Simulated assay, not measured.
Amino acid sequence: MMLSRRECEKILKNAQNSAGKSKLMDYTVVRDLSAIGYLGDYYVLTISYCYEEDEVVRDIKLFVKAMPQQSAELAKEEIFQKEAWLYDTLLRKMQTFSKIKWSADCVYTRNDLMVLEDIKLKGFKAAGSTELNEGHMQQLIKSVASFHAASLIYELQTKTNIGQTYGDHLQEITVASEIAWFTTGLSAVLAATRSLPQYQGNRELAFIDNELLSILGEIYEQVAPSKKYRNVLCHRDLWAGNIFFPPEKTGPALLIDFQTCRYTPPALDLSFSLYMNLGSRDRKKMEMKCIDLYHKHLIQNLSDFGLKELVIAKSELLESFEEFRLFGVVYRAVAATVVKVPTEFVTNDFKYVDRSNVILSYMKTNHEFRTYMEECCVDVMEMALARASM
């Protein structure tokens, strides 16, 4: 059995948080095949219990995320444990410095599993598409601002610097020069950019061959704590699949999957959210509105705790966002080489060795993919040219 009776008694107590004395009657753990994730196997835990005073049997359903059975990858174990640690320590404390709920309650963790409230039972749903509409973006921004504000308040109240104190726990897992899925993706983006008809002039080709990669490589510095801007705990993976929306249309979204968390300027989450969830046209239209809204919510969340003076200046936010656009642009292009192709393409060889040829030939045969990839590559090229002339 995955969980012992004693553990379930503990889980029941944590989940109820109530004064009433409850007695565990029974529990079952069933695999949930509707939830799909790279870093976990999912289960539904049903606990039957009753209160001593009335003997009525009640049920509580919880969501269990467990270490994947067939994974012997050491990296995956470390990543899983990073998230379990976050839920158990930082996120739980930070959520108390927030009047807005941005994360599901975690009631129990072990090195190999986490037990969380089942947010779907409360009517939370994923967006159902990879691009978000304006309403969804507003709900997301509300939660992100609240999450970041909680980070600022946590540091003040506990007199800790998250980056210094917990740096070992917040390791980089997706974007680094030694992380193969990313570097292989970067090479494929370069090859795709080089293949576009608008970049066949000698000047453009020379730029792509000699300068582009080192400019894009600046992204590696952007995922580390900044010496120039203020840092907060950032989620760093806010694409549509990691955001759940409440049944009411304006309530804050819930963020899930915290394993990519880093201590960086908030502009990193803003850049990621805008570039990963919107097409270029919609992003340009909504960008400033989203940043203004973020700043407004940040002030509001800090004011709720009488700490408005902790706010990050609007000028710093705008300046850092311009700098961290690079992250959004490059990440979107690299991610497209994996998430926008058929899953059967994504073999280990494709992921970790080379995917350029597959990407180039798929661009020739699939119009929709070509259009998306071209949009990503043009954004990359324009951003790189602008940075080169700075």
Score class of each variant (00 low, 15 high):
Ile243Met: 06
Pro265Asn: 09
His235Ser: 02
Glu248Met: 14
Val223Trp: 00
Asp269Lys: 03
Ile256Ser: 11
Trp239His: 13
Trp239Ala: 10
Asp237Leu: 04
Arg230Tyr: 02
Tyr220His: 05
Asp237Cys: 03
Pro265Phe: 05
Gly241Ser: 11
Lys227His: 12
Asp269Cys: 09
Lys228Met: 07
Asp269Asn: 06
Asn231Ala: 02
Ile215Gly: 09
Pro265His: 10
Gln222Pro: 01
Ile219Gly: 09
Asn242Cys: 04
Leu274Gln: 04
Leu268Asp: 07
Thr264Leu: 10
Gln259Lys: 04
Leu255Tyr: 08
Thr264Tyr: 08
Ser214Asn: 14
Tyr275Ile: 08
Ser226Val: 01
Asp269Val: 05
Lys249Thr: 09
Ile256His: 10
Leu270Phe: 10
Gly279Arg: 10
Ala224Tyr: 11
Tyr220Asp: 02
Leu255Asn: 11
Gly217His: 13
Leu254His: 13
Tyr263His: 10
Phe258Thr: 06
Asp269Arg: 03
Tyr229Gln: 01
Ser214Leu: 13
Leu278Lys: 08
Glu218Tyr: 07
Pro246Thr: 03
Pro265Asp: 09
Leu238Met: 05
Phe258Cys: 03
Val232Phe: 01
Ile215Tyr: 14
Asp257Leu: 07
Pro225Lys: 06
Leu270Tyr: 06
Ala224Met: 10
His235Arg: 01
Ile243Ala: 03
Ala240Val: 00
Leu238Glu: 01
Leu278Ala: 12
Leu278Thr: 14
Cys261Arg: 07
Pro266Leu: 12
Leu278Val: 06
Asp237His: 03
His235Lys: 01
Val223Arg: 00
Glu221Phe: 11
